[in-house]
Simulated assay, not measured.
Amino acid sequence: MRPLLPPEAGQGGNKQKAADRLLAHLRRWHRAKTEAKHFVEYNGKAVTSVKTAFKSAVRLAGLGPGISPHTLRHTAATWLMQRGADPCQAAGYLGMSLEVLLNTYGRHHSDFRCLGENRQS
């Protein structure tokens, strides 16, 4: 199968694995002949701007100003590490390399706290 993203796209992560999973979902969706007409939609209409849609979702959720997709990714990474999630699975979920996850968020993981304390000195 052809990947949706070239191997050099982005940083870290297994793009081929993600592309295969996405392609499988798209094929299943197509066979099911769902009512959806667009890849991303809201109330039956195409979402033409993810940026505008995200701003609307933040407003509707009452999250306040300054919230971005990066904020949510940062929060998810911190919470995953605090709860002792497997770093390899967390890195894959977050779309970042294991090295970046551990260097940036490892200090929040109970198994790596001693490493984080030594690095901060």
Rank of each mutant, 00 (worst) to 15 (best):
R21L: 12
S56F: 07
R113M: 06
L98Q: 02
A24I: 08
N118V: 01
L94A: 11
L63Y: 13
K45Q: 06
L101R: 00
S110N: 05
K17I: 02
V100Y: 06
R31F: 06
L98G: 07
L102A: 04
P3I: 07
T78N: 12
G44K: 07
E41W: 10
P69N: 10
S68R: 14
V47A: 06
P69S: 05
G116H: 12
Q11L: 15
T48L: 04
G10N: 12
G44I: 04
T75H: 06
V50G: 11
K15N: 11
N103W: 03
R119E: 09
R113Y: 00
R28F: 05
R27N: 07
H25N: 12
N118Y: 07
W29D: 10
M96C: 15
K37C: 09
P3N: 15
G84Y: 13
T104K: 08
N103C: 03
S110G: 00
A9K: 15
G44A: 01
E35I: 09
L5N: 14
P65E: 07
V47Q: 14
L26F: 10
L63M: 11
R73N: 04
R59F: 04
P7C: 06
H108Q: 01
A24F: 08
S97T: 11
E8K: 15
G92T: 07
S68I: 09
A18Q: 15
K15T: 15
R27G: 05
V50T: 15
G64A: 00
A24Y: 12
A85L: 06
P69H: 11
Y42A: 05
V50W: 12
V47I: 15
V50P: 05
F39A: 13
A32R: 15
H30N: 09
P6L: 14
V47L: 07
G66E: 02
L101K: 01
A36F: 04
